[in-house]
Simulated scan of single mutants.
Amino acid sequence: MTARLVFFESWVDAAAERVLSAQPEIEVQRLRYADPRAVNDAAMARAHGYQVQSRTELREPWLGDAALLARSPNLLAMSSTGAGYDYIDVEACTKAGVIVCHQSGTNTEAVAEHALGLILALSKRIGLADKAMRRPGVIDRFALQGNDIRGKTVGLVGLGAIGTRVAGLCGTLFGMRVLACDPYLSAAQVAARGAEKVELPELLRHSDFVSVHCPRNAETLGLFDAAQFAQMKPTAFFLNTARGGIHDEAALAEALAASRIAGAGVDVFLHEPPPHDHPLMAFDNVLLTPHTAGITAESLHDMAVGAAEQWVSLFAGRVPPRLVNPEAWPAYSARFRRILGTPPDPLP
């Protein structure tokens, strides 16, 4: 039986469609947000797979939630565009016998380099210097002196693929001390990834740079608020290239206004894109980017190819390499056999 895969508007790179076009057993359908709701609902009702756009581009009512699942009786799987999948209701999918996949690892280098770029730019005061150059008047270049990062301490909140790469870059290139807070890794595992395992309060007390690399979920939503910023050194910088909502944006603005921390680099926001009057826009010692850390030519290609190849594997009945909810596999297997006519492989 032909497997039907739907997506809205476009993949992040055309390489995905090239991969899928070589698979005659997979029918790929592009949907458009501007099309009538009834047209898209009909396509979703027939679909076996749904490639979900990134949160910034994704529109209602096409989030991967329980309401969409109720309108999609044949849906077997959803896949996020990148590593994050917080806009897919994994619990609802599991209850419905729908598996969820993501693209973790495909944009590791891009995000890690972006985080390092923010560390360097903040420490060297590159943003401030650039703004000073564009304003009239005499520049006091000694007032723009920065700091070397060699020998400083970076604290990583989350030590997955991206955090591990940041640890390697900071430790190897600049001889930085690398601390990491990750409750799911042992001290030995953290050491093998190039860091020292500490709890969050200790990390905040000792770090010159605090960089967030954990997923957004029930455990991490609102992880950084006024209490956490108060524990940081007044000379320290806060960075988040992970997900909006992990830090309280108002609390961060208050900490900056009170000079409780030295500055920040933020790529992600609770609501994207943020409004032009967002409080963080007012600070010269804050570098802001519009969720572009993972957007490079190389990473977009890798994300698209990774997603397409995962769909090929999934529809062939194999266990996808980046499965989020293996607990859904028994119900999914029964539905896969009923809908597509053959059973998928068992979980290893």
Rank of each mutant, 00 (worst) to 15 (best):
2 T>Y: 01
3 A>G: 09
3 A>Q: 05
6 V>L: 08
7 F>T: 10
12 V>L: 12
12 V>K: 05
13 D>M: 07
14 A>E: 15
17 E>R: 14
18 R>L: 12
23 Q>A: 13
24 P>N: 11
26 I>W: 03
26 I>E: 02
28 V>I: 14
30 R>N: 08
31 L>N: 07
41 D>R: 10
41 D>L: 07
44 M>Q: 01
45 A>I: 06
46 R>W: 00
48 H>V: 09
50 Y>N: 06
51 Q>S: 11
54 S>Q: 13
57 E>H: 13
58 L>F: 07
59 R>Y: 11
59 R>F: 11
61 P>F: 04
63 L>R: 15
72 S>T: 13
74 N>G: 03
77 A>E: 08
77 A>M: 14
77 A>I: 12
78 M>H: 13
79 S>R: 12
80 S>L: 08
87 Y>R: 14
88 I>P: 04
89 D>L: 07
98 V>M: 07
104 S>I: 13
109 E>Y: 10
114 H>T: 10
118 L>S: 09
121 A>E: 09
121 A>N: 13
127 G>A: 11
128 L>M: 14
138 V>C: 00
140 D>K: 11
141 R>M: 13
146 G>I: 13
150 R>F: 12
152 K>E: 10
155 G>V: 01
157 V>I: 14
158 G>Q: 01
158 G>C: 05
164 T>E: 14
169 L>E: 01
169 L>Q: 00
169 L>F: 13
173 L>Y: 08
180 A>P: 07
181 C>P: 02
183 P>D: 12
187 A>Q: 14
190 V>I: 15
194 G>R: 10
194 G>T: 11
196 E>T: 15
198 V>W: 11
199 E>W: 05
199 E>P: 04
201 P>K: 12
201 P>A: 11
205 R>N: 11
210 V>L: 10
211 S>L: 03
212 V>F: 04
213 H>S: 01
216 R>K: 15
217 N>F: 03
218 A>W: 04
219 E>K: 11
220 T>M: 07
221 L>F: 00
222 G>Y: 02
223 L>V: 04
224 F>E: 00
225 D>L: 03
228 Q>N: 08
235 T>D: 02
237 F>A: 02
238 F>Y: 15
239 L>Q: 04
242 A>I: 06
243 R>V: 03
245 G>L: 08
247 H>M: 11
248 D>Q: 03
252 L>A: 05
255 A>V: 08
258 A>L: 13
260 R>G: 03
266 V>E: 00
266 V>M: 02
270 L>G: 14
271 H>E: 13
271 H>Y: 06
272 E>C: 01
274 P>W: 10
277 D>Y: 09
277 D>L: 09
278 H>S: 13
279 P>M: 06
282 A>R: 15
283 F>M: 05
285 N>K: 02
286 V>A: 04
289 T>K: 01
289 T>G: 06
291 H>P: 04
291 H>L: 07
292 T>A: 15
296 T>K: 08
298 E>N: 09
302 D>H: 02
303 M>P: 03
303 M>Y: 05
305 V>Y: 12
306 G>W: 07
306 G>M: 10
308 A>D: 05
311 W>V: 12
315 F>I: 09
317 G>W: 09
318 R>I: 06
322 R>T: 09
327 E>G: 00
327 E>C: 02
328 A>Q: 03
331 A>N: 04
331 A>G: 10
343 P>L: 05
345 D>R: 12
347 L>F: 03
